[in-house]
C-alpha cells in the first residue's frame, strides 16, 4: 500500500517535474546570458496561461496550438521589455534589475486583470486518461510532459548546432572574450532575453495543460519561487540543467509527501515545501554550480 502510493506519487512527480523544468529554462537562460534574475518570471507564465485559455475558449483550438503562439507573443514581449528597460540597466547594480523585473511582473498582472478581471478561470479539454494501476494519468498531462521534453531538446539543438546558439554559449562563458572575438554581444543579450521570455510564456501553456484551472492574474507568484529553487538545482545559468532540476524537484516534492505522512502530528504537505527550500540552501552551499555539473 505504502509503496504503491509512493510509486504513484513518483510517476506524477516525474510528469510534473518535466513541466517545472520547462517552466524554469527561460529563467536560467536569461540569468546565464544577462546575469539578470527575472523576478517577474511567474507573470510571464500567467500570460501564457491566459493565451491558452483565450485561444481555447474563443477559437476552440487545442492547447497544443497555443504553444507556438505563446512563444511568439513571449518573443515580442521580451524584445519590448528588453529595449525599454533591461538594456538600460545591464550596467546598473543588481538591485535595479531585480526591482525592474519585479515591476514588469506587476505591470503584466495588472494589465491582465484590467482586461480579463480577477476571476479564477479554467478550461476543460477532455482527452481521456491512462490507468497505470498505481495512479491515473490524464492524457493532457502526458502531452504536456512530452511537449516539455521536445522543447528542451529543441533548445539543446539550437544551442549546440546553430551559429546563434554558439554565440549565446560564448557569451555565457565569457562575455568580454566573446566581444573580442567579434560576437555581437548586445544582439545576443536581446535575443536571449526574448527567447527566455518566449520559453517562459510557452511554458504557461504547458502549465495549464497540467492544471487547467485556477487561471488568474496573480497565479504566477508560486511558480516564480519554485523556478528559483529549480534553477539553482540546475546550476542557475544552464537552461537544460534547469530541465533536469525540474525533474528532480517534481520527484522530491511529490515523493516526500508519502514519507512525511508517516510522521504523526505534522502536516506533511507543508513539510514537502520546507524540504524543497532546505534542498535549495544545501545545494547553494555545497555546490552552487548545480547538482548535475561537475566542477
Amino acid at each position: 500500500m505504502l509503496l504503491e502510493h509512493l510509486a504513484g506519487n513518483l510517476i506524477q512527480g516525474l510528469v510534473l517535474g518535466a513541466i517545472y523544468g520547462m517552466a524554469t529554462m527561460g529563467l536560467s537562460l536569461i540569468f546565464g546570458v544577462l546575469k539578470v534574475v527575472n523576478v517577474g518570471h511567474g507573470a510571464f507564465i500567467m500570460v501564457g496561461a491566459f493565451i491558452t485559455l483565450w485561444i481555447f475558449n474563443a477559437l476552440g483550438l487545442n492547447p497544443i496550438f497555443s504553444i507556438p503562439i505563446a512563444f511568439a507573443v513571449g518573443l515580442g514581449l521580451g524584445l519590448i521589455f528588453y529595449s525599454l528597460a533591461i538594456r538600460k540597466l545591464l550596467k546598473a547594480p543588481e538591485l535595479s534589475t531585480l526591482l525592474a523585473t519585479f515591476a514588469i511582473g506587476i505591470l503584466l498582472e495588472e494589465l491582465v486583470k484590467l482586461i480579463f478581471g480577477s476571476e479564477f478561470r479554467g478550461y476543460n479539454w477532455v482527452v481521456g486518461k491512462i490507468n497505470l494501476g498505481v495512479t491515473v494519468l490524464p492524457v493532457a498531462k502526458l502531452y504536456a510532459c512530452i511537449g516539455s521534453i521536445i522543447i528542451a531538446l529543441l533548445l539543446y539543438l539550437w544551442f549546440n548546432r546553430t551559429r546563434a546558439g554558439s554565440a549565446v554559449r560564448s557569451v555565457v562563458e565569457d562575455d568580454e572574450g566573446a566581444r573580442v572575438c567579434g560576437v555581437n554581444v548586445g544582439g545576443v543579450y536581446a535575443l536571449s532575453f526574448a527567447i527566455g521570455i518566449g520559453l517562459t510564456v510557452a511554458s504557461g501553456v504547458l502549465v495549464t495543460m497540467f492544471i487547467p484551472v485556477g487561471i488568474n492574474p496573480y497565479m504566477g507568484g508560486g511558480y516564480t519561487l519554485k523556478a528559483f529553487v529549480i534553477a539553482v538545482l540546475g546550476g542557475l545559468s544552464s537552461p537544460y540543467g534547469a530541465f533536469f532540476g525540474g525533474l528532480i524537484f517534481g520527484i522530491v516534492e511529490n515523493g516526500s509527501y508519502t514519507l512525511f505522512a508517516l510522521i504523526p502530528g505534522v502536516e506533511p504537505f507543508a513539510l514537502t515545501r520546507f524540504l524543497s527550500f532546505v534542498m535549495l540552501l544545501v545545494i547553494l552551499l555545497i555546490r552552487p554550480t548545480g547538482i548535475l555539473k561537475a566542477k
Binding site: 502510493h5 504513484g8 509527501y257 506533511p268
Partner: peptide
Amino acid sequence: KRTYPKGVTDLTPLLSAFKG
C-alpha cells in the same frame, strides 16, 4: 484529516493519499 498549504499548485499527493 489533512491540510494542504496555501497557494499550492498541485494536490496530487494529498488526493492520492485519501483515495486509499
